[in-house]
């Protein structure tokens, strides 16, 4: 009934891995010809941790750090998701054993992969059965409260990977620049689910952002959240034709928060869910060319030849409804 599905879920130092992500914000799987959002059918979600320690991180440190990361997702008041530590195991993450296992694995061959999340999906329902996270012990790790120079913060990386574990895809709310030695460095990001990690020593990735909160709330809405939340949807075109892969950002001038999504079909349609009601400023931008593989199947043609632009009207997200289709025409660079 079940088979392991390799969905991309990697947080990397530079270029992302080429496995396909089927959708932004939420993953989808095809079940009997229809697209089903990948999520857990029941909570609390039980997980186990391995007893493997690495320099600077004992097994107890590891358990505590991932526990804090799970607690951060659990604390989102507009979402209803919970987790339960089911014990310590000697199993290795990545095995189809019915246990959602988190632990260190030494993978020096994956020299740009800090951590990775994999799923076991019941292909008859699309429900998650198991999700494993491995942290690459080929990198230096830290659980120091204030971070540690030249070491990656385990809690920050765990927070990102648990986002995938929950069923979230990558967010493109971030800026990068090319590094002299190859790859890219993050200048800034506004989503834990941004696919490239902050530099070693940083602990800026321990706090969820509005984009992450909207995503988890959309996927597992709290009882009082769903009726109150709204969506913002529309269509991006260039030269009259739908544009695939445009990054659409909804900015809330009241809170300064940003939530984003992509146009996900050839008609150029997009939808951003999990939004609190209110006015929004809408910005449309092309993906950075280096980021494309972090979000889309490499076989998809993503158009990045257009100018960044803003919608010239204030878009209203209603309570419990949709903004109505916003038409956005972009122009080539």
């Amino acid at each position: 009934m079940s088979r392991r599905v390799a969905i991309a879920l990697l947080i990397v130092l530079a270029a992302a891995q080429p496995e396909p992500a089927f959708a932004y914000l939420k993953f989808g799987v095809s079940v009997s010809g229809r697209q089903v959002t990948l999520k857990w059918a029941q909570t609390p979600i039980r997980y186990v941790v391995t007893s493997v320690a690495v320099p600077g991180v004992s097994a107890d440190d590891f358990q505590a750090a991932v526990g804090r990361a799970f607690a951060t997702w659990h604390a989102v008041s507009t979402a209803s998701i919970s987790y339960q530590l089911a014990g310590v195991t000697n199993a290795v993450p990545g095995r189809d054993d019915g246990l959602s296992t988190l632990g260190f694995v030494n993978r020096p061959d994956l020299d740009r992969v800090l951590a990775s999340t994999s799923f076991l999906v019941d292909m008859s329902t699309g429900a998650l059965v198991e999700s494993d996270i491995f942290f690459n012990s080929a990198f230096p790790w830290s659980v120091a409260p204030g971070g540690e120079a030249n070491r990656f913060d385990l809690e920050s990386i765990a927070l990102h990977e648990i986002g995938h574990f929950n069923g979230l895809g990558h967010s493109a709310l971030g800026e990068t620049e090319l590094r002299a030695g190859g790859g890219r460095t993050v200048l800034a990001s506004q989503a834990i689910m941004f696919p490239i990690a902050f530099a070693p020593g940083s602990i800026a990735g321990r706090t969820l952002k509005a984009d992450d909160i909207a995503g988890i709330s959309d996927l597992y809405p709290a009882a009082d959240f769903a009726p109150a939340a709204g969506t913002l949807s529309g269509r991006v075109t260039k030269n009259g034709a739908g544009l695939f892969g445009a990054h659409v950002v909804a900015f809330d001038p009241a809170t300064g928060s940003m939530v984003a999504s992509f146009t996900l079909n050839d008609n150029g349609q997009f939808s951003i869910g999990g939004l609190s009601p209110g006015p929004r400023v809408v910005r449309v931008e092309p993906l950075d060319d280096a980021d494309i593989d972090s979000f889309f199947d490499a076989t998809r043609q993503v158009d990045i030849d257009f100018r960044v632009s803003f919608v010239d009207r204030v878009v209203i997200v209603p309570r419990g409804g949709d903004s109505g289709e916003i038409a956005i025409a972009v122009v080539p660079k």
Binding site: A188, Q190, G256, V281
Partner: peptide, 20 residues
């Protein structure tokens, strides 16, 4: 009101995307 669209840098600073 006025608000900036800020992203967070690795040192927990702000990177301004645009301003309103």
């Amino acid at each position: 009101g006025a608000a900036d669209a800020n992203e967070t840098t690795s040192s927990n600073g702000s990177f301004r995307l645009f301003t309103t």
